[in-house]
């Protein structure tokens, strides 16, 4: 069942406070978090979060198209290595 619209999206308040503190001093740093269930609000765009995947912290640089998704969606708990070792046409 979807979350009630009345409540609005779930955002970890401590995380939001950390971002707002950085915004006020106009500084950027990587924010460590375990709050995978936090919905990404527009305020997070341009900030980088180190999201815990149960094993290590995965850096997630938040872009506009990620707003409305959960932070955990971008830090998979099972990493699928889709590119082969050795020479191939995969670029980055």
């Amino acid at each position: 069942m979807a979350r009630s619209l009345k409540k609005g999206p779930y955002i970890d308040q401590k995380l939001l406070m950390k971002v707002e503190a950085l915004r006020t001093i106009n500084q950027k740093k990587v924010i460590k978090t375990w709050a995978r269930n936090t919905t990404i609000p527009p305020e997070f765009v341009g900030y980088t979060f180190a999201v815990h995947n149960g094993n290590k912290f995965i850096p997630v640089y938040v872009q506009e198209n990620m707003v409305g998704h959960k932070l955990g969606e971008f830090a998979p708990t099972r990493i699928f290595r889709s590119h082969p070792g050795g020479k191939s046409e995969r670029s980055s």
Binding site: I58, P59, V60, Y61, V62, Q63, M66, E73, F74, A75, P76, I79, F80, R81, S82, H83, R90, S92
Partner: peptide, 11 residues
Amino acid sequence: DVLALPAHNVY
């Protein structure tokens, strides 16, 4: 290594 993750690649 370069990891292909949902948000972006990660070095």
